[in-house]
């Protein structure tokens, strides 16, 4: 009797235990609102996930609401598929939804990522789910949430511009590092999540949908395909991505991907490796276009 009632009220029992179907529907509605108003932060009733808040509970809700049995899911943390957190999340979702685990960016339908956008350009039909620790780009400028929302509503962003101006005055350049603020479709200022500046241009005019989900702050926002995403900077101060002259990946020799330092044989942080492990592996096996001749856009220039 109880089982029958349950079914009547909530539909067929979901696959065991992370998330119920009604909640998934609510998250999908929030994502659709976000896609309809690019860059606008949609409040949603963020649920507790079997991971700590801050370990991707927002991204996980988005991913769980999107995957089906026939989906191929890639999860990366800091660019790596094999990181402990990424592996655990991927296994968790696969066990729940019966989807297939994937590491090749090209084959994935859904890519959940913490703080990176893959080097492989995304294609039509893919969804990139970014985990967001802090959703509000104005949080460091005004604390009052009503004022933050008023500023967004009226596109009153001069305080953000003054902050960039002051940064240049005091430091000679804009020191915003990861999570560089962007203007979406000429309307809303948005945080792209703490991706490096290297990844910010990939969000512009992307073929894929980008969903950004903040579980602790209970907000979802999105960038639909072919949307203008422009890093905030002055016309005469070009946006700069990370660059370290002469540095190249120790494994694949790449100079045109985002590389991070790792300890060399002498124990100092002298060696560099690609942060996107999938792309690096493909480079080494000849399954990705070779790096353009050194000196091109290698680790630098302006984007």
């Amino acid at each position: 009797m109880t089982a029958q009632l349950t079914t009547e009220l909530a539909g067929p029992p979901p696959s065991p235990g992370i998330f119920d179907e009604l909640s998934k529907r609510e998250i999908r509605r929030a994502m659709l609102s976000g896609i309809a108003i690019p860059g606008y932060q949609v409040p949603f009733g963020s649920r507790e996930m079997p991971v700590a808040r801050g370990w991707g509970s927002g991204g996980l809700q988005a991913t769980l609401s999107l995957v089906g049995e026939d989906s191929r899911l890639k999860v990366i943390d800091q660019g790596e598929d094999a990181g402990v957190n990424a592996s655990n999340l991927r296994r968790l979702v696969a066990a729940h939804a019966g989807c297939t685990e994937e590491t090749d960016t090209r084959s994935a339908d859904i890519i959940q990522s913490r703080h990176r956008i893959p080097e492989q350009p995304l294609r039509d039909g893919q969804v990139l789910v970014l985990q967001v620790p802090g959703a509000e780009p104005l949080a460091g400028i005004v604390r009052d949430m009503d004022e933050q929302r008023r500023m967004h509503a009226e596109a009153d962003y001069s305080k953000m511009w003054v902050r960039l101006y002051e940064d240049i005055v005091h430091n000679g350049l804009i020191t915003e590092a990861a999570g560089y603020p962007v203007l979406v479709e000429g309307r809303y200022i948005m945080t792209p999540s703490p991706i490096p500046r290297w990844d910010v241009p990939k969000m512009n005019d992307s073929e894929a949908i980008t969903v950004l989900s903040a579980g602790r702050e209970k907000r979802i926002f999105a960038v639909p395909p072919h949307t203008r995403v422009v890093p905030l900077t002055f016309d005469d101060r070009p946006f700069e991505v990370e660059r370290t002259p002469g540095a190249a990946c120790r494994l694949c020799g790449s100079q045109d991907t985002y590389i991070v330092q790792e300890p060399g044989p002498d124990g100092t942080f002298s060696a560099w490796v690609c942060s996107d492990t999938d792309f690096c592996r493909r480079r080494r096996t000849g399954d990705a276009p070779a790096a353009p001749a050194a000196g091109g856009t290698a680790q630098g220039g302006t984007a």
Partner: peptide, 24 residues
């Protein structure tokens, strides 16, 4: 869960952002 989760997340790797910060 919000506040304890936040302390837990600090223990995740942050080297991608950290490189960006150091570079600036």
């Amino acid at each position: 869960p919000d506040s304890t989760g936040y302390t837990q997340h600090l223990k995740l790797p942050h080297h991608v952002e950290y490189r960006s910060v150091l570079e600036r």
